[in-house]
Amino acid sequence: MTSLFTRPPLPGGAVRRAVVASVLALCGAASLTACGKTISIGDSSPPATSSAAAASPSATQSTSGAGNSALQVVDSTAQDAGLSGNGGTVVGAAVQEAPPKWVQLSAVTSADLSAAHLININQAALYRFDDDTAAPSQSNCTGACAAKWPPVTIQEGGNVYLAGVNPQQVGAIRRPDGQVQITVGGRPVYRFSGDSRPGDLNGQGVDGKWFAVGPTGEKATR
C-alpha cells in the first residue's frame, strides 16, 4: 500500500512530499502497536529475522529496574493514533528541556534533496554523523557538538510513529547523559540547530561528515 502526500507550501516556498507506505498492514487504533515492535534501549541494530528486541548487555544494565523503559515503534502516524501537536519536540536552536512523549519519523523528498530523507513532526530535517558507529550503535557527538546537533531524544516508554520507515530499522541507545536517542539503521539521529524553518537543509554536508539521514540510516545525498 503506497501513498504519496503533498504538503501545503512551506515557508520559503519549499514543498515536501512524503514517500513510501506508512502502513504495512491495516490495524485498528486499539492494536496499532501490533503493527510495529517493542524495543529495549540499546536495541539499535535492525533484527535479521525477528521483530523481537534482544537487549544487549549494556541495554540490560541501562533498563534494569525501569519497567517503562521499552519504546513502542508504531508503523502508523501519530495522527492515525488520534494524536495532535508535536509530542513536545522543539524547533531549530531551541533547547529540548525534556524528552518528547512521542516522536514521528517521516520519509520525504524535497526540492533541495530528491533522495528520501527523514523529518520529524515539525518537518525539521534529521541527520546522521559519519563519526558515529552503527554496529555497535554509538553516538560520538556530545558536549558542544550535541548543542549544535541536538540528538533526537524520546521519553522512556514513549512511542515512535512512522511514515515511510520500516519499523525494523528503528532502535534506541542511551547517551552518556542518560537520555534516550533514536537510531535508524543503527545510526543515531540528530537535528541541526541551524535549521529554523520547515524545509531547511542547512546541515547537509557540514564538515564533510553530516548528512540528511535516509529511511535505512543511509546518507541521503542525491
Rank of each mutant, 00 (worst) to 15 (best):
S22N: 11
A172P: 01
G85K: 02
A220H: 10
A98S: 15
G82H: 12
P151A: 08
T60S: 13
A18F: 09
D80S: 15
R128W: 13
G67N: 12
T89I: 08
N159S: 14
I39F: 11
C145L: 02
I182G: 00
S193Y: 01
G13P: 06
K101H: 13
G199N: 05
V73S: 03
F129V: 02
L24K: 12
R174N: 08
V189D: 05
R175N: 14
V15E: 07
L162Q: 05
W149L: 12
R197A: 13
R191Y: 02
G85S: 00
W210D: 05
A111V: 02
L126P: 07
A115T: 10
V20N: 01
G217Q: 03
L126R: 04
S22T: 08
S193D: 12
S56Q: 09
S84Q: 11
V160Y: 10
Q104F: 01
A135Y: 12
G164S: 10
T2M: 13
L105A: 05
V206I: 15
T109F: 03
V213P: 01
A53C: 10
G185R: 03
T60C: 11
S64A: 14
D195Q: 04
R187M: 14
R191M: 01
C145V: 03
G164H: 08
C145A: 05
G42V: 05
G67F: 10
K219M: 15
